[in-house]
């Protein structure tokens, strides 16, 4: 058997799954095999954030992550956020604030915003900019993205109090 191919098992948006994986493929390639298109390889260098995936609850660049390394881990992709059928607070805030244009980068921004608000429930503009600076939006919906993060934070805090 080819030693570069391994069977890995992991949790994908709450479901236990497994796959035969070649050593060279990355996490975005792997997700494509499960028909998940939300993480997308764009710059290919971890700089644009279009390929953001949460691995064990931590955001990583899917294009720089070898797929075999997620063996035993738990992955959340943008498709996992509305598993209940309802949009997440962050997703709804992005719609309400018009925080995207072409939408290609949006899943990455949405996932990073979830991460930010998990660690910092009420970020100021400076903190929002710093945290999301590793995600690029060529349509430059940046002012709207900042507003969406604030709106999402406000709504999440309102729910939790």
């Amino acid at each position: 058997m080819d030693p570069s191919i391994r069977k890995i098992a992991f949790t994908l948006n709450g479901q236990k799954v497994s796959a035969q994986v070649e050593s060279h493929i990355n996490l975005v390639d792997l997700l494509r095999r499960f028909n998940l298109d939300g993480a997308r390889e764009s710059c290919g260098q971890g700089l644009c954030g279009c390929c953001t995936v949460l691995v064990d609850g931590v955001a990583v660049s899917g294009c720089l992550t070898l797929a075999q390394l997620v063996d035993g881990k738990s992955l959340t992709t943008v498709e996992g956020l509305d598993a209940s059928g309802a949009l997440s607070v962050v997703q709804q805030a992005f719609i309400d604030e018009g925080a995207f244009q072409c939408g290609f980068c949006t899943p990455g921004f949405v996932l990073m915003t979830h991460q930010l608000l998990e660690t910092n429930a009420d970020p100021d503009e400076h903190e929002i900019r710093d945290y999301l600076a590793g995600n690029l939006c060529r349509c430059a919906a940046y002012p709207e993205i900042i507003r969406a993060v604030k709106t999402a934070g406000d709504r999440m805090r309102a729910i939790s109090t």
Binding site: G46, V58, V60, S61, T65, M112, G134, N135
Partner: peptide, 12 residues
């Protein structure tokens, strides 16, 4: 650290 790379890179 905050200026050193983006959050995803710092995570891994």
């Amino acid at each position: 650290m905050k200026k050193l790379a983006n959050v995803r890179v710092r995570n891994v």
